[in-house]
Computed example of a mutant assay.
Amino acid sequence: MGTGIGKRVTSTDVAREAGVARSTVSYVLNRTPHQSIPDTTRQRVLDAAARLGYTPSAAARTLKRGRSDVVLCIVKPWPLGSASGALLAELTAGFDAHGLTLVTHIEGTGVRPIEAVWSDISPAAVLSYTPLDADAERAMRRAGVQCVAVLFAGEPDGSARFVRPDVRIGRLQAEHLIAAGHTRIGYAYPEHVSLRDFAEPRLEGVQTACAEAGLAAPEVRTVGLEAESASSAIRHWRGLGEPVTAVCAYNDEVAQALLAGTRLARASVPEDLAIVGADDIPAARLASPPLTTIAIDHAAEARRIVSAVTSVLREDAAPETTDPADLFTTVVRESA
């Protein structure tokens, strides 16, 4: 069915082509939840839109509702690895299922300030890995951002703010080593200062597990991603009056640096030094020896985040209440 050369196809054209009401077209193409539209009708609308080459106007929806269908995720300039990439991929798919688009913005020098980004996008929700400035958060809410959620840092505070308990990761690492009979434990802290928001809770978990077992606090050393840095830490640990026999590494990359460092320090794993990583990146199982690590269920993690955000946007549903402790599993391999 033609609509004239140069004329933009509208939802009215699609409704006429499909033989349905314009509201039905809107419900189908915007994937509006809780609408009981028969599958045959839904398919007829989709087929009509495809034949006419119709695409909904994002700008029009933004103007009408005062917000876009974008979820803006603010990320600090961290060294992003496969674990971060896996979570962002799961979040992208999860929000897409609700008709929302995840846009990631990495803060840093030389890029537009976050205030300019969110004001231009008019997002439905803003996610931040770390707490936002109070004035910035108030400005977002005044501008119509319905949901501002802080991920993985701070304390729970309302339906749209929650924590991934990285403390649990450190606790599981230490508990595994303590159960294996180790009584002097080290902690390999990451060199990159921006990772402090994640490293501190993981270290806290190790400290808590050691204290509860009646052991000395973990011996902390900063370890860079070079064999020389790692070997220096290993020599320090092994040279103590009561040598460290097992180490909780901040993540699998730091753990792999330790594996390289043991060769320079002429130490064997796990005989001289047991090592536990975190994140269970693909390379962990390929290490020599393969790394014992803490795996994170990124799919379940993303479902919790998406559920929390969409429940606020819909104002008609409770978020998923999965116990966040269930996100973590100790994967036992040969390094510890």
Rank of each mutant, 00 (worst) to 15 (best):
P56Y: 06
R42Q: 06
S57M: 11
S57C: 04
A58M: 09
T62L: 06
G66T: 08
Q43I: 00
W78H: 03
C73T: 01
A60D: 10
I37W: 00
G53V: 01
P33E: 15
R65Y: 10
I37S: 00
R65I: 06
V71Y: 09
V70R: 07
P77W: 08
A60T: 13
V70L: 13
T32V: 15
Y54T: 01
G66D: 06
A48Q: 03
H34C: 06
D47A: 11
G53N: 05
H34N: 15
V45F: 04
Y54E: 03
L46C: 06
V70Y: 04
P77R: 03
K64D: 02
P33H: 10
Q35K: 12
A60G: 15
K64Y: 03
A50K: 15
V71N: 08
R44K: 15
P56S: 11
T40M: 03
S36I: 01
L52T: 01
V45L: 05
T32S: 13
Q43C: 05
R65W: 08
Y54M: 04
L46R: 15
A58H: 15
H34A: 15
A59R: 13
L52V: 02
A60Q: 15
R67G: 06
V70D: 09
R51I: 01
H34K: 14
K64N: 11
S36L: 07
T41V: 13
L46A: 09
L63I: 12
R44Y: 11
A59L: 12
A58K: 07
H34S: 13
A59S: 14
S68F: 08
D47C: 01
S57K: 08
R51K: 11
A50W: 05
R51Y: 02
I37L: 01
D39Q: 09
H34M: 10
L52W: 07
L52H: 09
T62Y: 03
L46T: 03
P33G: 14
R42A: 03
P56K: 12
D39Y: 00
S36Y: 00
I74L: 15
S68M: 10
R42E: 02
R51P: 00
T41I: 12
T41A: 00
P56W: 09
C73E: 01
V75C: 02
K64P: 04
A48N: 02
W78A: 09
R65D: 07
T55H: 15
P38N: 02
P33W: 05
T32W: 06
